[in-house]
Amino acid sequence: MAGMSGQRRMERRWGLLMALPAILGFVIFTAGPMVASLAFSLTDWQVGGTPAFVGLGNYTELAGDELFWTSLGATTYYTLGAVPLVLIVSFAVAMLLNQKVRGLPLWRTIFYLPTLVPAIANVVLWIWIFNPDFGLLNSLLRQAGLPTGQWVYDEAMAVPSLIVMSTWGFGNTMVIFLAGLQGVPRHLYEAVSIDGGGAWRRFWHVTLPMMTPTIFYNLVVGVVGTFQVFNQAYVMTEGGPNNATLFYVYYLFRMAFRESEMGYASALAWVLFMIIVVITFLLFRNARRWVYYEMAGAR
């Protein structure tokens, strides 16, 4: 119909126009530095010196770099633990903070507080929690008659300890879920209730499906962000003990700024980039099966 194609034309025109700031932003601020770093990755370049073209030299060197594999392993381990844990905790808390209770603003602020406490204060706290002698964790375990641990000071326990610590950073993910819950249409809940469905059915048949776009978002952002985990290794463990928490981006950062080996660091970065791109692509492809969008097919 003529009318439809008119609307199509309008959508195309407006679509480009409205996406323009974002596209320009990418072209101006992001693309240049990305291309530059890709070019660096083909050179032997120490900041302050002259780059020498080495082709794929950095990439082949990387394959034989023991620490590259160590850091990739530590990061994958951390991601596999932290992402699902944070997703589950923050979803549960969001459900909890979406109930009708007294003092809701206060409860919500309290649950968001750990996200706001500055990293350095947090680190000092966690150093105490993990302290083998007087630490909170071991004191609790001792009282319960359970064996105690060395936590971040033990090679085997360091990554799991940091995963536990990451759970306290659930605030942002939780807030997104909380916002998402407001979009679940109430009439759907009513429909389930009228059919005699209980809370579990409402959750399973309404909340969960209607929340899939938000869950998907948090999953993707969680994976992209966690693969680039940096801070905990940087401020808390410095990659130790014995490289147990040598996270990929921490290793890369050390190469880039301690050693100023920008060529090698760039190669490291682009390998991680490819890994993240592939995983994200797979997530998006898989999303068609489980993420519910309003009339997604029609669009």
Partner: peptide, 9 residues
Amino acid sequence: GPGQLAATG
């Protein structure tokens, strides 16, 4: 030992 002083660095 490691961590006993409540210290990382």
